[in-house]
């Protein structure tokens, strides 16, 4: 269904995410001031920038958790701002991981993973459970299937959240500062799971403050400030040899 990129030219590929001239305002506060942005299939793009730069808003526009004020957001060639688009259907193909995990606290870990499979993908309970257990194993938490979220550490909760998103068999994953709410010693396990996903070829858009992760795993780094994309490129270029003063200023503070 989706054309595969030509290995040499990449010309035939529909980008996983393609955003054009995106504006987003909250009241009179314009947070995104005309963003052009894309993520190719299989690409890992890390979005960095100071807080308030609009990077989380950009990510949340991709699955329309935020309603764009103007501009287009295409996911696998489908315009998601079109009112005719089956938004719920598109969302099942976009996994999302939140800063605050957002696990369902009243459900067991297993039920967290099977709920949307059954309600949104119409999978049977047995199939959903099998897929859930496979993904729990993948994030190293198979033994926590019957626990409640409150009984897990933050790092474990975030890995469950990743497993929950993966259980929908998404084509791409969005990460909204996935390690920012974690104690430092718990960050590593979550990043390890994300690295493994990247190695498996998952398309990923990651809003992060983890420069080490961006450098090691990212195919491309995008630096945002003040609602615009200031500069982007290979991690070693953007992080190692930034061209813009604002990028240099930001990196001097975080590195």
């Amino acid at each position: 269904m989706i054309p595969v990129a030509h290995p040499a030219t990449g010309a035939a590929a529909v980008p996983a995410i393609e955003i054009r001239a995106l504006h987003k305002s909250f009241g009179s506060n314009e947070v995104l001031k005309g963003i052009d942005f894309h993520v190719d299939q299989g690409e890992v793009v890390c979005v960095i920038g100071p807080s308030g730069s609009g990077k989380s808003t950009l990510l949340r526009c991709v699955n329309r958790l935020e309603e764009p004020t103007s501009g287009t957001v295409m996911v696998e060639g489908v315009d998601i701002t079109d009112s005719e688009t089956d938004l719920d259907g598109v969302r099942t193909r976009i996994g999302m991981v939140f800063q605050q995990f957002n696990l369902f606290p009243h459900l067991t870990v297993l039920r967290n993973l099977t709920l949307a499979q059954q309600r949104a993908k119409k999978r049977g309970r047995a199939e959903a459970t099998t897929i859930a257990q496979r993904n729990l194993e993948k994030v190293g938490l198979a033994e926590k299937a019957d626990a409640f979220p409150a009984q897990l550490s933050g790092g474990q909760q975030q890995r469950v959240a990743i497993a929950r998103a993966l259980s929908m068999d998404p084509d791409m994953m969005l990460f909204d500062e996935p390690t920012s709410a974690l104690d430092p010693e718990l960050v590593g396990d979550v990043l390890e799971v994300m690295k493994q996903l990247a190695r498996e070829g998952m398309t990923m858009m990651v809003v992060t403050h983890e420069m080490g992760f961006a450098r090691e795993v990212g195919d491309r780094v995008v630096f945002m400030d003040g609602g615009v994309v200031v500069e982007q490129g290979r991690p070693e270029d953007v992080l190692g040899d930034p061209q813009h003063e604002r990028t240099r200023l930001f990196l001097s503070k975080v590195l």
Binding site: L65, M96, N102, L103, F104, R119, A120, A165
Partner: peptide, 23 residues
């Protein structure tokens, strides 16, 4: 109920009715 709960459910592709009933 925290807004993030609805966002998590909707981002998984659940419609608003199922989100209300199950989450």
């Amino acid at each position: 109920v925290p807004k993030g709960q609805v966002e998590a459910a909707r981002s998984l592709g659940m419609n608003s009715a199922w989100t209300m009933v199950t989450v």
